[in-house]
Design a protein around this nucleic acid. Structure first.
Lengths: 142, 142
DNA sequence: ATAAACTCTATAAAAAGGATAGACTTTTTT
DNA sequence: AAAAAAGTCTATCCTTTTTATAGAGTTTAT
């Protein structure tokens, strides 16, 4: 299950993308629109900024805005940034790998094998679907 | 990421399956073999017993044993039992569904759509692979 | 009767998740 | 230059979940 942090990040990014034409967006606007604690959202947007996904402008008329087009932001990237590993086990994680104690040889571990398949199937979707893909259907009904 | 509980459950079940011919297996044996705290493992085995996956025998000569053949135990069942939902979002979970606030209509939510696809891809593997499948490769090298 | 072994309830320590406060910095406007 | 608006950043706190432990109770074989 994705953490609240990641879920909130998705909602915030969707709002930013759908209002990209309006210049910098206030944290408070996103917080209100999506029912997220404003201070908690601050932390999340800051992480997204430090990762180079968002930019911010201080002072009056400031706020947050996307630094990339929605199409350039894969969902997997957001999840990894805020939640860490996408894989179900540390020993099959590509980005947060940890060796498995009690496992003589991961190459012949059946659990490792199955979980690698799950990881591949998941990543095939999450690395190819982008912020743009989770906007499409929303936008079409507006 | 799967919890330690689920990870330990897999290891314990593997041990039980690979030693099924030896009658009831002691908790302490599994704990030692797999480097798991004996008391923590107790809880896990009890949950598996209450779910009808394991049986136990008290008293001298007692221990735990599988009530089903490894082939009859899908990995998804173990995960759901100890970890809960397999899906990444509550609003796409089949067994632990929760409605999404802030979502006017889940049927047209792009996030819901993508996460449903991830769930389907994951379940396709985890509901068809069983305890037997994570033994195969282990056993073949013994 | 006794020792071996699982059962069960309670509790506690540690980690993660979620939320808040407040001082600080930057920018715009006047 | 000063004031106000707005975001930045660090520290702290509370709650929940996860992980782990303790110990008394019950069952069974011998």
């Amino acid at each position: 299950m994705l953490s609240k942090k990641t879920q909130y990040a998705f909602h915030a990014l969707i709002h930013l993308a759908e209002n990209a034409d309006k210049g910098p967006i206030l944290i408070s606007e996103i917080a209100q629109e999506k029912s997220i604690s404003i201070k908690f959202l601050e932390n999340i947007l800051l992480e997204l900024k430090n990762a180079g996904i968002l930019g911010s402008k201080k002072g009056k008329g400031g706020g947050y805005y996307l630094l990339k087009t929605p199409k350039e932001i894969p969902l997997a990237k957001i999840i990894r940034l805020l939640d860490g590993a996408i894989a179900l086990l540390p020993c099959v994680s590509l980005n947060y790998y940890e060796r498995c104690e009690n496992c003589r040889d991961e190459a012949v571990c059946g659990l490792n094998d199955v979980m690698s398949k799950v990881r591949d199937a998941t990543l095939k979707i999450l690395e190819n679907k982008t912020l743009k893909d989770i906007l499409t259907r929303n936008v079409s009904i507006l």
